[in-house]
């Protein structure tokens, strides 16, 4: 019996575990090894270079630029996307009581960017942001406002991409926050009301915000992970330009690996990126988890 049970367990978990090892763990291991070599795709030879690749990433102006750009992007997108997601969710949650139909419709509207393919959406953004023909600049010049070069101004391009990143992720965060809001016991709000938390502000700090703790943590982790991986908008809208002003880690990784075929260097970037994300997630969970689950 015990034997048969373990056989069926193996049969059920085995294929998935095998696929995981072959398709995820093995390539990751290979990448970790390649990161210490000068391997180029298609090259006949391979040489051990130690930490040279990492030195190049952190030492070169290009590498540091990509890291800095990514950090800037992330530090704009995380707070804005989480904050806006919460704000929209609070608004729609309150609206659902008085105007349920409108609330449902707005939910769908906010979620649309999440469901849509970002590459396809990027084309729309390109048209909207076109310096002379785009809707944004036509309107802003009609209103007498300046018409900046959204995607080709070196000082502006990163913020434009951040805005698109926020637009794209707010809907997802909103859905998570809505689920979190729906799970709050209504009696806690009654208790807050009886206890004298009469303003919406007081109720938010007494009940809503602490009760959303686990949701907020999850939303932050998910948003951080996706913000660090920003790629589609960069690849389709700017190709890292102008003059590398919007070059990000993942785009640099793509360029080095798939355009210049420098597999060794690309692997090193991957390793750094992987470890950074791991560290961030672990930090968020260890530090904040203790404060959000009230056991």
């Amino acid at each position: 019996m015990n034997m048969r049970e373990s056989m069926s367990t193996l049969l059920l978990t085995g294929p998935a575990a095998l696929a995981l090892v072959l398709c995820v763990f093995l390539p990751v291991a290979v990448v970790f090894v390649l990161a210490f070599t000068n391997y180029q795709i298609g090259a006949p030879g391979i040489g051990w270079v130690g930490l040279d690749n990492f030195a190049q990433l952190f030492g070169s102006r290009m590498g540091r630029n990509a890291i800095l750009n990514t950090l800037t992007y992330v530090s704009i997108v995380i707070p804005a996307s989480v904050g806006l997601g919460l704000l929209v969710a609070l608004g729609l949650h309150a609206l659902a009581r008085s105007l349920p139909r409108v609330s449902e419709m707005l939910k769908a509207v906010y979620f649309l960017p999440v469901a849509a393919t970002l590459v396809a959406m990027a084309v729309s953004w390109q048209m909207l942001l076109h310096p002379s023909l785009g809707l944004v600049n036509t309107w802003s010049s009609a209103l007498g406002l300046p018409a900046p070069l959204w995607l080709s101004d070196r000082g502006l391009v990163l913020y434009t991409l951040s805005a698109i990143g926020i637009w794209q992720s707010v809907g997802y965060n909103m859905v998570l926050f809505l689920a979190g809001l729906a799970a709050i016991q209504p009696s806690l709000y009654d208790a807050a009301e009886v206890d004298g938390a009469t303003s919406g502000w007081a109720r938010f700090w007494l009940v809503t915000w602490p009760m959303l703790g686990p949701t907020t943590l999850f939303v932050m982790v998910v948003t951080a992970a996706s913000a660090f991986r920003v790629f589609e908008t960069v690849a389709t809208l700017t190709k890292g330009g102008p003059a590398f002003a919007s070059d990000t880690i993942v785009y640099a990784l793509y360029r080095e690996g798939f355009v210049y075929f420098k597999a060794g260097y690309a692997s090193a970037i991957t390793v750094v990126f992987f470890l950074a994300l791991l560290l961030l997630t672990a930090l968020q969970i260890w530090v904040i988890e203790r404060k959000v689950h009230y056991r």
């Binding site: 009696s187 009654d190 208790a191 602490p210 009760m211 009230y294």
Partner: peptide
């Protein structure tokens, strides 16, 4: 008037304690 203004205490069936406090 709102509950707080009436100065009425209410004990809930589920107790409704604030779990984070």
């Amino acid at each position: 008037l709102r509950p707080a203004a009436r100065n009425i205490a209410l004990m809930f069936q589920s107790y409704a304690l604030y779990p984070h406090l």
